[in-house]
Simulated scan of single mutants.
Amino acid sequence: MNPPADVARNSDVLMIAVLNGDQARGVLEGPDGVLAGAHPGLAIVMLSTITLDELDGLVEQATKHNVALLDCGVTGGQLSAKGEMISMIGGDDTVVARIMPVLEAFNAEVHHMGDTGAGMATKIARNMIHFTVWRAGFEGAQLAAKAGVDLEKFAALVENASHKQGASVTTWMTPEKIVPGSDPREVGKHTLVYHQKDMDAARELAEQLGVETPTCDVARAKGPQTYLQE
Rank of each mutant, 00 (worst) to 15 (best):
D217M: 11
V187I: 15
T170A: 12
L28W: 00
T122S: 09
P4N: 05
T75E: 04
I44D: 02
S11Q: 02
N10S: 12
A5Q: 13
A118V: 03
A68V: 06
G166N: 07
T63G: 05
D198V: 04
G117T: 09
P175H: 05
F106T: 06
V149I: 14
S48P: 00
E84A: 09
K64Q: 14
V45G: 00
A202P: 06
T213Q: 08
L28D: 00
P175S: 05
T191A: 13
Q78W: 09
T174R: 15
L228H: 07
N2R: 15
A81W: 04
T171C: 04
S87D: 03
S168N: 11
G77V: 08
G90D: 03
R25Y: 01
I89M: 01
V169G: 03
G37E: 01
L42W: 01
L55S: 01
G30Q: 09
Q208S: 13
G26N: 07
W172R: 00
L205R: 15
G114I: 10
P31V: 06
E104F: 04
T174F: 12
R98D: 07
N107I: 04
A155P: 03
L14C: 05
M85S: 15
H130D: 06
A202L: 12
A105N: 12
H130Q: 10
P31D: 09
F154I: 10
R135Y: 03
A141I: 01
G210D: 02
R185E: 14
F138C: 11
K197Y: 11
D71M: 03
A155T: 13
L228C: 04
T132D: 12
G30I: 07
P4T: 02
K177E: 08
V133Q: 13
Q61T: 11
C216R: 03
D22A: 14
P175C: 07
G137Q: 10
